[in-house]
Structures are given as C-alpha cells and as structure tokens.
C-alpha cells in the first residue's frame, strides 16, 4: 500500500503546485507550460495506478493541447489587467470554493475506500476474455461492449472540427466579400 501512496501523494502535490502557478502567474506562456506539467503529472499518475492506455492517450492529448495553446498565446499581446477593485468578489469566490472542498472532505468519507472498488460490472468485463478474445480488457470494453460510446466520441470530435473550421475560415466573411 505505502509503495503506491507515497509517489501518488508526491505526484498529486506536484500537480497541485503546477496548477496554482498556472492560474496565478502573470506571463501567459509560463502559465500554459505549467498546465503541460499538470497533464504530464497526470500521465505519470495513470501509469502508477495501472492504467497504461490512459497514460499514452494523456501524453498525446497534452502535447496537442499545449501546442495549440502556445500557438494561441505566442505573438499575441496580452493587455489584461487584474484590478484590485473587485477583491470582495475574489474573496467570495474563494469562500465558495473552500466550502466545496470542505463538503468533499466530509462526503468522501462515505465513499468506497480508496483501492477497494466495488467492481460489480468490472468483474464481469474482466472475465469476458473468452467472449471477445481481447487481451487488453480496456479495449474490450471500448470496442466490444460499449462501442456506441466510441461512436458518440467520434461524433463529438467531428462536430468540434467543423466548429473550428467555421470559426477560422477567412472566405465568406462579411468584411471580405467581393
């Protein structure tokens, strides 16, 4: 137990610190890079928690997201001023977020304890090796038992691509007809 918990706490503390720096630092480029640190920390946690498929996907997704954000941030001047006039507002939001954390602290004591999952459905999926012939049970769930999930995922991705194309195209804008 302890050999998992120690690196888990260390990595999660690293992710928390990187997240706070990402939110609070002034320079947008450093903030994006700190977000990348959070994502790669998450990939390491996935490896630690025996989810190698998730770790691979997380690394790829994080690289793409950070490249996109860097592309958006570099060479665009940032003129945002964080004014001090709305400090009461900030304090109020801080109190609400703190209340959520305290509520979570109370609620999670009622949840299934860490490292002892219920496995009602998971047990059946694990024993389905003869049904699907798959060695990797995660892909068996994805592509055999819940293939409609993957279909919906593909739909969402294509919708997002169409949205990006519609927003970024320069032809057909009202300004440059003719």
């Amino acid at each position: 137990m302890a050999e998992v918990l120690l690196p888990l706490y260390a990595l999660m503390a690293f992710m928390l610190i990187a997240a706070i720096i990402a939110v609070e630092t002034r320079d947008l480029l450093s903030s994006v890079l700190c977000l990348g640190a959070v994502g790669f920390g998450l990939a390491l946690v996935d490896l630690l928690l025996k989810a190698p498929d998730l770790a691979l996907t997380q690394v790829v997704v994080e690289i793409i997201a950070v490249v996109l954000l860097i592309r958006a941030v570099v060479a665009r001047e940032d003129t945002t001023e964080e004014s001090l006039s709305d400090t009461p507002h900030v304090a109020f939001v801080g109190m609400v977020v703190g209340a959520i954390v305290i509520a979570a602290f109370v609620c999670f004591q009622q949840l299934v304890p860490f490292a002892k999952p219920l496995m009602t459905m998971g047990e059946a999926y694990l024993r389905s090796g003869e049904l699907t012939g798959a060695k990797n049970q995660v892909t068996a769930v994805l592509l055999d038992f819940r293939a409609y999930d993957t279909l919906g995922e593909a739909t969402v991705i294509f919708a997002a691509i169409i949205g990006c194309y519609a927003l970024l195209r320069t032809r057909g804008r009202i300004g440059n007809r003719r």
Binding site: V61, A65, L126, E153, A159, G163, C164
Partner: peptide, 24 residues
C-alpha cells in the same frame, strides 16, 4: 484494476481535447 472507469476516461480525455481546441 477495474477496466470500466479507464474505458470511460479514455473517451472523455479525447472529447476534452476537442472541446479545448474549439475554445482556443
């Protein structure tokens, strides 16, 4: 370990990337 949450999160991660791309 339980494969069901891993399969669901695998879908969610990719959807999250497309949402972030649209926001960017």
């Amino acid at each position: 370990v339980d494969p069901v949450p891993q399969a669901l999160v695998l879908t969610a991660i990719v959807i999250g990337l497309s949402v972030v791309a649209l926001m960017v």
